[in-house]
């Protein structure tokens, strides 16, 4: 069996303690939460951190889902299955449960965390697309305090985020606005696999008009997991099939998929459009009161 290289192990007892440990141990220290992205990388020795700081003890501090003012707040240590099971999430943002249902498998979802998935920044990661579409923000804490970054600006490239060496992602805030409908669509080679392509669609509607929209894409090389062109094609429009198809075409045109064993770029580009259209149809139906 593959085994990780040796490392020093620390257990953080609070967010402040975790930050203190990060500062003390330097850039070769890594936080580990669910570990389902990091530990496999360590086993094939692509990642060899000198220290691991286990933040699982922070599950109570960072693991809750709540409403704060006009935002849904998701703690970074929220396990995927807790997000999937949350009635609050289901009430406001069914897109997150659509996405969670197709992330890995139920047992992995018991360990994997929302924050861990976002910070791994895999280009095919589902929540990055869904939360970007929702215009969510990430709260990042360091020793000098907290800052707020739109999820759309969290990722600077594959496997890279703006979270600093001595910072920790603590929570995600999703603004709650009236008239919202959202949905997520994914095609995978097999259940539990990373996406060949996936699309996240969010519409906010008022009087039959889409007042604002979010279109997220994963695994197709979309900058920051979103398609601004598709969003622009939706804003101020009635959600007709023509509008949806035009937005989907914009998403397909804007993304930049690459060919790999999941499929050729041509196919992934097609999927970006097809799945955007499907997600938009469901999002609109949900905004209009259907499921």
């Amino acid at each position: 069996m593959q085994t990780p290289a040796p490392f020093g192990y620390e257990r953080a007892t609070s967010v402040d303690h975790a930050i203190q440990l990060l500062e003390q141990l330097g850039p070769e220290a890594r936080l580990v939460a669910g570990g389902h992205s990091l530990l496999p990388m360590m086993k094939i020795r692509l990642a060899q951190p000198e220290h691991l700081i286990d933040i699982n003890p922070l599950a109570a501090e960072l693991g809750s889902i709540s409403i704060d003012g006009d935002s849904l707040v998701i703690g970074a240590m929220t396990r995927h299955n807790d997000l999937l099971a949350s009635p609050l999430v289901g009430e406001h943002f069914p897109i997150l449960q659509d996405a969670e249902r197709v992330i890995a498998d139920p047992v992995v979802r018991n360990r994997g965390t929302v924050g861990g998935s976002l910070c791994q920044a895999d280009p095919a990661e589902d929540l990055s697309a869904a939360l970007s579409a929702l215009h969510a923000t990430a709260t990042i804490r360091g020793s000098s305090g907290s800052r707020s970054v739109p999820v759309r600006e969290l990722h600077v490239g594959p496997y890279e985020t703006v979270v600093g060496d001595a910072e920790i992602l603590t929570e995600i805030r999703v603004p709650i606005r009236n008239g919202c409908g959202s949905a997520y669509e994914k095609v995978e080679r097999r259940v539990g696999d990373w996406a060949i392509a996936s699309a996240a669609a969010v519409v906010w509607m008022d009087g039959g008009i889409i007042t604002d929209a979010g279109v997220g894409l994963a695994a197709v090389g979309a900058d920051h997991f979103v398609s601004p062109a598709a969003e622009a094609a939706l804003r101020g429009q009635q959600p007709t099939e023509d509008v949806i198809v035009a937005a989907a075409a914009a998403a397909a045109a804007e993304c930049n998929p690459s060919t790999d064993q999941r499929g050729p770029a041509e196919y992934k580009r097609h999927l970006a459009g097809e799945l955007t259209a499907r997600a938009l149809r469901r999002a609109v139906a949900r905004a209009q009161g259907g499921q």
Binding site: M1, Y9, R11, V32, G35, H36, L39, P40, L52, D54, N56, P106, V107, V108, N110, R111
Partner: peptide
């Protein structure tokens, strides 16, 4: 898979320390 605090977990992807 084993059960950890009542939840099934893939024990190849969890440290004993955790």
């Amino acid at each position: 898979v084993v059960s950890v605090d009542g939840q099934p977990v893939k024990s190849c992807t969890m440290l004993a320390a955790m």
